[in-house]
Amino acid sequence: MLLLEIQKKSLELATIIFAQTARAADAGTARFPDFSVELESYYFNEMHAKAVELAVNMRRMDDSGSTSGAWIRLIGEVGAQDPIGSFLAPTTDPMTIRDVCNKIIHADDTRYDQGRIENSDGHGNLLNRQTYLTGEVTLISTDPKNAWKCHIDLLAFARACFTLTDRWVSGDFERSP
């Protein structure tokens, strides 16, 4: 059941990221442009909630499977396929899936990167500019004993979590060294 929940949260997070871009692209011709502000707030809250839920579920899975050599090898293999995050301070090392989960769960400050789409009338006249959440985020801990800062690609994180659980269920990995 936990594996299915991880896959569901992975897809929900990815859908929110894609929908955010589509909303911004459509805003120049939208019937209700004033509704765009409410949608942006909704997407921000949902993206944050889904990222935390996915991170918590992945940690639960990792904690329950961490005694398995096969799980450890698979999580390392999937994590190495796509960079999903990197530390910015005090080190610049790449992050493991477990690192990303921990930072999403324990961040004191979350700063979502924004992209911008400019809508024009086809004659070069700017109609409006729309911002959207790109799915990339900078997370910061302000704990004086353990301060850190990192950058995470939430879409790559969702993909890695989905791929990891899909391969675990299908047995598409080497179970012994």
Rank of each mutant, 00 (worst) to 15 (best):
L39F: 12
S120P: 03
G79T: 00
E40Q: 12
N128L: 11
V78C: 00
P83C: 05
I105R: 06
G122F: 12
R73I: 05
L126N: 02
E118L: 07
H151R: 15
M47N: 05
T110F: 12
R73A: 15
V37N: 11
A55Q: 04
S64C: 04
L155S: 02
A89S: 15
G65N: 14
W168T: 06
V52R: 10
Q130T: 12
P94T: 00
S141Q: 06
L127A: 07
M47P: 04
Y43W: 06
I84A: 01
T92F: 11
A156M: 03
E136M: 09
E46V: 10
A51S: 15
Q81W: 03
F157N: 06
G79F: 00
T67F: 14
S170Q: 13
A160Y: 05
Q81E: 14
P94D: 00
P144R: 04
D82A: 11
H123V: 04
K103G: 00
E53W: 10
V56I: 11
G122Q: 11
I152A: 06
H106E: 07
L154S: 01
W71S: 08
Y112K: 01
K103R: 12
L88I: 15
A160T: 15
T131L: 09
S66P: 03
R59F: 04
F32G: 09
S170M: 09
P144K: 04
M58R: 02
E118G: 06
G76F: 01
D109C: 12
L139H: 10
A156Q: 01
D62I: 10
C161M: 08
Q81L: 11
L154N: 00
R73C: 07
A107P: 03
T138A: 09
F44A: 07
G79I: 00
K149A: 13
N125Q: 09
D109T: 15
F32V: 14
V169R: 09
A80G: 04
R98N: 12
P83R: 06
E46D: 12
T96S: 15
C161G: 07
T91R: 13
Q130Y: 02
F44S: 08
W71L: 09
N125D: 08
V52L: 14
S66G: 15
R167E: 08
A55N: 01
P144G: 03
D62P: 04
M58K: 02
I97W: 04
E136V: 09
E40I: 02
L39R: 03
N128W: 01
L54R: 08
L127S: 06
A80P: 02
R159F: 12
G135A: 00
L154H: 00
N125I: 08
G115W: 02
I117A: 05
T134D: 00
I97G: 02
I140W: 05
H151V: 11
Y132A: 01
D113H: 08
N57S: 14
F162D: 12
E40N: 10
A80S: 13
N125C: 04
G69T: 11
R129E: 11
R59L: 14
T67E: 15
D108W: 13
R167Y: 06
T91C: 03
Q130F: 03
L54N: 09
Q81D: 11
F173D: 08
N45P: 01
F173R: 09
F35L: 14
D93P: 03
F173N: 04
A160R: 09
S141E: 07
H151N: 12
G65K: 14
G76R: 07
P144N: 02
L139C: 11
D99M: 01
N146D: 13
